[in-house]
Design a protein around this nucleic acid. Sequence first.
DNA 1: TCCGTGGGTTTGAACGTTCAAAGAGAAATA
DNA 2: TATTTCTCTTTGAACGTTCAAACCCACGGA
Lengths: 349, 349
Amino acid sequence: MAEKVTIADVARHAGVSRQTVSNVLNTPEVVREETRQRVLDAVEELGYRVNQAARQMRTGRSRLIATRIEPDRDGINGSVLDRFLHGLTESAARAGYRVLLYTADDDTAEIATFEDLLGAYEPDAFVLTGTHHGDIRTSWLLGRGMPFVTFGRPWGVPDGAPHAWVDVDGAAGTAAATRHLLDTGHRRIGFLGWPAGSGVGDDRREGWARTLRAAGVDPAGLDRATSDGVDDGETAARDLLESGDPATALVCASDSLALGALHAVRSPGAAVPSEDRAGPPVAVIGFDDTPVAKAVGITSLSQPLAEAATSCVTLLTRLLDGDNRTPGSSGDPHPHVLLQPSLVRRRSG
Amino acid sequence: MAEKVTIADVARHAGVSRQTVSNVLNTPEVVREETRQRVLDAVEELGYRVNQAARQMRTGRSRLIATRIEPDRDGINGSVLDRFLHGLTESAARAGYRVLLYTADDDTAEIATFEDLLGAYEPDAFVLTGTHHGDIRTSWLLGRGMPFVTFGRPWGVPDGAPHAWVDVDGAAGTAAATRHLLDTGHRRIGFLGWPAGSGVGDDRREGWARTLRAAGVDPAGLDRATSDGVDDGETAARDLLESGDPATALVCASDSLALGALHAVRSPGAAVPSEDRAGPPVAVIGFDDTPVAKAVGITSLSQPLAEAATSCVTLLTRLLDGDNRTPGSSGDPHPHVLLQPSLVRRRSG
DNA sequence: TCCGTGGGTTTGAACGTTCAAAGAGAAATA
DNA sequence: TATTTCTCTTTGAACGTTCAAACCCACGGA
């Protein structure tokens, strides 16, 4: 086992007291230049590293950020959060924090884990993903005065954001996709999404509908709602393509749905197979730019996940350091960042 | 902020001393039944939770397991480690440990991170992934006497395993795939893999070659080595299919290569397009059962990742608790677990 | 000469836990 | 009765750090 170097060892080696060493590390401006250098040399020479546990005990700060790792549900969209997690780990490290993982099957279980973690490891903050209407996790954390940032907006909250958040503008994404299809000559552009009420889903649908209307196309009857599976997407797409005046292009709320849609478009098993209808093939655009979309050649909207992670850490450090500032400072009460997705063009559209 | 409940609060509330409370939690058998119950009630009532930092300071155990989160290289195979990570987080939690994340670009950087983490957070153990020939990470950890488990064998180590490990039997996987193809009537079965020397790659190639030989087929000339990209796979597959006596089926070392192979097989741009050759289409089998394989319909070998993660935690806890036992106990010096992959059949083979 | 000032440093205590050892009774033994 | 033994419980110290306060000393002003 490695020999443990403490602050006392450094102090002895540099011929100063414990506190001076501590000052050199935490408030260097208070130490005389010459002394500081001597201490730094000793630190270097002995390979000293501050012990987090001891520091935490005294200061109450663990320099730990806790976040949940999701069981990848359908395997396709799971990769999104994994990439976010990787970015978070990197950004956090740069800011001097480490990421602590936990799992939880639902919001209630997650809150139980909050209690557990707060009692035992005392993370300085949480990063929540997958926010939704009536999210009990955020209210719980707010009630505790616990610092946190969400990747995802606080959906359905009437008066102002109650907490810091980072999100990607889904509506802007589907709007860009729709505009792209309009530019390519499509008019009847359908939307494949999730049942109303899901925040993210409604937002993405809204971007599509808004853009169609602006182009003078009535979106009514051009959208279908279903759960987020490949087969669901295929069924819903087929339904949309068999309607009286079928869509010639589809914007989808996820790559899973887009993959399903592609099956419907390509598969000869369709009641109205594409060969029967003259004209160009039906265009399909997905959301999230997952590896699957890339492999299959689906045009998709890419979320800037690394940037989102960095923003989360930036907001968090601001929150955590803000404790020291004047508590009543009303500037920037609940900062947020809204990032733009970008369209990655592939064969499907 | 939540009120902090300490062991002293519990002691006062139950009318006993600090140490008795500690004993109830750590060595209950030493406390009288009645007292124990009284303390447990107090713990419950006050919502007491042991403070990890304080405990760590005294015992030197952090109940933290550190592991690396990889930047997903080609996006396809990345999902494998993410699923493993999720399993690890769950299994660790069940054993009373939490997972701490870090990133590192190469082995040297990873070792630097070891030093950093060991000085600051003092994780009890590491879980390493992606072992390879001459892995300097494992030797570094061994030199420090630091407990760890690798997901991946210690490749190229002559005399016995120097440390605990968990792995999936790649050779058995490709052997099963090859056998399956033989059973389907194929004889000229090719292999698409990586350049020799990579441990994992050589192992997977060996399973294929061994099985072919056993069936009386000479594998010579039937394999190609390339780097792990979709385009690389396509090129290599094309090369293999254009040879004098082309393969009728391909076993691939990864789903990325398999996807490339599928392109080569299906694409009409091939010098020897499948339509020109009479007979059934070329079968393709991948490795890892990624979401992409599922989406595209590639038959692939699935690794039992959750089980692998559980095994890692099991081996770790044995290592960590083993410290207390007789140090010279020679039973089970470096335990390991070798799991079997399973073939998931899809359209491609 | 004395005092106040201020930069730079040290001292003692505390964070919450567990280890090691000591203490308090009651029961068993001499 | 005195002594040992045993079970259960308490006391003091320690882990490594930082906070709060005290200390030291050189300097400038009265």
